[in-house]
């Protein structure tokens, strides 16, 4: 999220916590996908992109493997076009073959699940992955669709009207 934390927001994770969570998730991705063969990370524009890059760096440090990463914009696949203003962020960049790959979709916050639904639809336009996994820094609950993450930085109980902001400097809620 590029918007700043709202006034009076409460910091729930600091920069160190986010860094440690990133390293832990990187370990989990390596463990779950032995050999990392055919694994690629796809960050959801915008909030997921920096995290996908960080995870690729962390995996390289742990394992020495080069895991390709890219970004995907899901605006044209959303189900709330013409209900609220929907504007694309940055053009999707997937510099690797999706067919047969194991794709880890990466986002900052998992909330209703609708963005991930859109991301799944957007992703399959580029090919047929062998499997798709989901990684988020914060799972804040309130799901409206049957979507569940495979890798989570932090489970954060929230009320539906709170705003959660995740950056590499930390996580705030308010």
């Amino acid at each position: 999220m590029d918007k700043g934390a709202p006034e009076g927001a409460k910091q729930v994770l600091g920069a160190d916590d986010v860094r440690r969570a990133t390293t832990r998730i990187a370990h989990e991705i390596v463990e779950r996908n032995r050999g990392l063969d055919g694994v690629a990370l796809v960050g959801v524009q915008r909030g997921g992109v920096w995290l996908a890059r960080r995870l690729a760096e962390a995996i390289a440090e742990i394992d020495g493997s080069h895991v390709p990463w890219g970004s995907i914009d899901v605006a044209f696949y959303r189900d709330d076009i013409a209900i609220r203003p929907v504007t694309p962020a940055a053009v999707s960049e997937l510099p690797f073959d999706i067919d047969g790959a194991t794709i880890v979709i990466v986002d900052d916050v998992l909330f209703t699940g609708r963005t991930i639904r859109a991301a799944l639809d957007a992703l399959v336009e580029y090919g047929r992955p062998a499997a798709v996994q989901l990684c988020v820094m914060v799972d804040r609950g309130h799901r409206q669709l049957p979507i569940r993450p495979d890798f989570v930085g932090k489970n954060l109980p929230t009320s539906a009207d709170e705003t959660v902001v995740v950056t590499d400097l930390g996580v705030t809620i308010g």
Binding site: A75, F76, Y77, I81, T87, P88, V91, D121, E125, Y126
Partner: peptide, 24 residues
Amino acid sequence: DRLMELSDHMSEVNQRANPKVPAL
């Protein structure tokens, strides 16, 4: 500016094997 940036997204769609999105 906004229309030019949107056009970048549309050009990317047009380069795909299946150049179609469900937006409208």
